[in-house]
Amino acid sequence: MSVQLAIFERMFDHGEVPALALASPEPTRSAVEALQARINAMQRTTLDTKLTPTHEALADLLPDGGLKQGAAYSVTASSALVMALLAGPSQAGSWCGVVGMPEFGVEAAESLGIDLDRLVLVPHPGDQWLTVTAAIADAMSVIVVKPGRAASDGAVTKLAGRLRERGATLLVVGTWPQTEAMISITASRWSGLGQGWGYLTQREVTVTVSSRRSAAPRSGRLVLPDPELGIRRLDPPLGAGRGRLGAVQTGGARPAPVTALPRRAS
């Protein structure tokens, strides 16, 4: 935020933007677009504080730049990815619930940054998984559910209403009718293991997020798990890639980074 403030201060105090506008029309348009994007992004986070704190390595991949409260996300079968998504809210002090996943690895969860004191597991909800999910949506900020039996559309809509009302985020392991985005691991490469020697040390994954709101899916490379940090981003984050301009950027025409502005003016 302080960087952004600094940019605005320069913009208004030193009249750099008008100077730019006179100098060349072409960069101005992209600069204005970038600034609008930046303003949009800031307005989103300041006016609608409906985001659950998300781990920074994953935040920019998601539409709106984080997990939205009251929304459902579909995560394709990877426990580590689920844990990475839980890590942010858990570290920020939220309670997390995991329903129907007896295989959830507690040790891995802790090493990825989930606070076990605020993690509640319902390993075997049986046929009542939907009721259980609705019940703990009252208290938990993020709920992971692995659906048992298929749910009816009516029940899903009812649950979605409950989630919106309570501001809880639902992560579904598997498919789900109304999701904000589908998060999956599209490539995975473990290192440390050879032909009969070594042991698993770390893994590079490509996380792909596809949503209805953006035409092309977004991908990012992560180290998950990383021996020191737990979760680490490999490629640079998608800079101003938030909000409405997300689709445009992933389409290829990426505007110049805003941080280049002062340098150009001088």
Binding site: M83, E103, F104, G105, V106, E107, A108, P123, L200, Q202
Partner: peptide
């Protein structure tokens, strides 16, 4: 086992 721990432990 050495770290990292497996994320999925079959019940």
């Amino acid at each position: 086992l050495p770290q990292p721990a497996p994320a999925t432990v079959f019940p």
